[in-house]
Design a protein around this nucleic acid. Structure first.
Length: 415
RNA sequence: GGACAGUUGGCCGAGUGGUCGAAGGCGCACGCCUGGAACGCGUGUAUAGGGCAACCUAUCUAGGGUUCGAACCCCUAACUGUCCGCCA
């Protein structure tokens, strides 16, 4: 959630920042109005309540002194009717403000370039040179089926389209990758955590998937539980409603989970292969930091994901997302895109974001510093999406006969 | 899933209708004591919102009810514990 005080006191600057993220100006004005309304409603209600509390106190005193309470009772009853109305007004104002505020995205960092969509993202650097082939490289689904690694049809049979089955060396490689990634991250100081893959509404509101993006989530029938779209949700919400000690920060975590996404609105895109599935595996990084630590940790997380790709020998590039491509909760994001020879293009394999205090406000994650409670900064990033890493390995390390050369770093995880 | 018990501040724990934002303890902070420390003694120590401030409002898991007035009485829900059932 954005800082409503900032909106209140610094309306123009906040409005401009939000407009960079394509929030429409009517919504911003409505938010300010709702905030003002609530402030007034609270003030009115609270002073009425103060008067009523005083009358109640007197009531007790009169009783004790044996004085008549008849007149006071009439006053109290009259005020009570008023109070109920004022409370109602205040509640409505509160609800109105909340439902607006929860749908307003985070402000972009000043460093984020303006832009409409992914075409305006800015490449920071390329790492490793894409391989050259003496033959026409195949796309991963061809390789996967030829090697018996992935069975797309049977995945559909078991569930529906965009589900697949991985078997044999493919399944072993998947497991090897997960272990390799977790170990790699752990060596860089990220504590391994294993979390629930179903979470409640409150958790999803904390990280920003709800209330706006319910259509993207799988919900469990008959329960207020959802399948997680990313481990960012449980990992970040571990500290929901908590006040942490400043000296315990930063908290750096890594976790492996399956992720579940409806991929609503992505119809027709990446239908073949395992680039875009309803269920996929991902190793995630999440950090909870003090405000002054978050930029450094952000760089650390980007480096971690990039070095992981380098260790696997996968050519990739780093891209700064422009305002138009930035996610709902992100203040800034760097995507890592891996080279796919079969597709002859770079494709997203990791996305590292800082939400600054946006999620912390929603999830109420704070830390104590000099006796004051402050909101933490939360950061998340993939390291890496396992399925897409498999795709990249297949396409980059394919041989002319269709076999795949598995990188040395994974050998010890395959023995 | 069934039965019973519970949920109070950073933690433990008292509190059955007004004087309770809450005794006492632990922890923590500061001071005294000490060569220095421990012990001991003293003082302070929840959160959020509003106000320059005095102060006001809200919060004893959550929501609702009774009452002039609720941590306290009633209802519902969530969670925790124990026993039973089921189960990897």
């Amino acid at each position: 959630m954005i800082d409503l005080k900032l909106l209140q006191n610094n309306f123009d600057a906040t409005a401009i920042a939000l407009q960079r993220k394509k929030v429409d100006s009517e919504l911003i004005t409505a938010l300010k109005t709702a905030n003002d309304l609530l402030k007034n409603a609270k003030l009115t209600y609270e002073s009425a309540q103060a008067a009523q509390n005083e009358r109640s106190r007197l009531f007790g005193q009169y009783k004790k002194e044996g004085k008549s309470t008849d007149e006071l009772k009439i006053e109290v009853d009259a005020a009570k009717v008023q109070l109920v109305e004022l409370l109602e007004t205040q509640r409505n104002a509160q609800e109105a403000l909340e439902s607006l505020a929860m749908r307003v995205p985070n402000l972009p960092d000043e460093s984020v370039p303006d832009g409409e969509d992914e075409n305006d993202n800015i490449e920071i650097k390329k790492v490793l040179t894409p391989p050259t082939f003496s033959f026409t490289p195949k796309e991963h689904w061809e390789l996967a089926e030829a090697n018996g690694w992935i069975d797309f049809e049977r995945g559909v049979k078991l569930a529906k389209s965009r589900f697949s089955v991985v078997s044999g060396m493919g399944a072993r490689l998947e497991r090897a990758l997960i272990n390799f990634m977790l170990d790699f991250n752990r060596e860089r100081g990220f504590n391994e955590v294993s979390v629930p893959m179903l979470v409640n509404r409150r958790a999803l509101e904390g990280t920003g998937q709800l209330p706006k993006f319910e259509d993207d989530l799988f919900k469990v029938d008959g329960e207020e539980l959802f399948l997680i779209p990313t481990a960012e949700v449980p990992l970040t919400n571990l500290y929901q409603d908590e006040i942490l000690n400043a000296q315990d920060l930063p908290i750096k975590m890594t976790g492996y989970t399956s992720c579940f996404r409806k991929e609503a609105g992505s119809g027709g895109r990446d239908v073949r292969g395992m680039i875009r599935q309803h269920q996929f595996h991902k190793v995630e990084l999440v950090s909870i930091t003090r405000a002054d630590q978050s930029d450094a940790i952000f760089d650390e997380m980007v480096a971690c994901a990039s070095d992981l790709l380098t260790a696997l020998g996968l050519p990739h590039r780093l891209v700064t997302l422009c305002t138009g491509d930035l996610g709902f909760g992100a203040a800034k994001t760097i995507d890592l895109e891996v080279w796919l020879p079969g597709q002859n293009s770079y494709r997203e394999i990791s996305s590292v974001s800082s939400t600054r205090d946006f999620q912390a406000r929603r999830a109420k994650i704070r830390y104590k510093e000099e006796g004051k409670n402050k909101f933490v900064h939360t950061l998340n990033g993939s390291s890496l999406a396992v399925g897409r890493t498999m795709v990249a390995l297949m396409e980059n390390f394919q041989n002319e006969d269709g076999t795949i050369t598995i990188p040395d770093v994974l050998q010890k995880y395959l023995s």
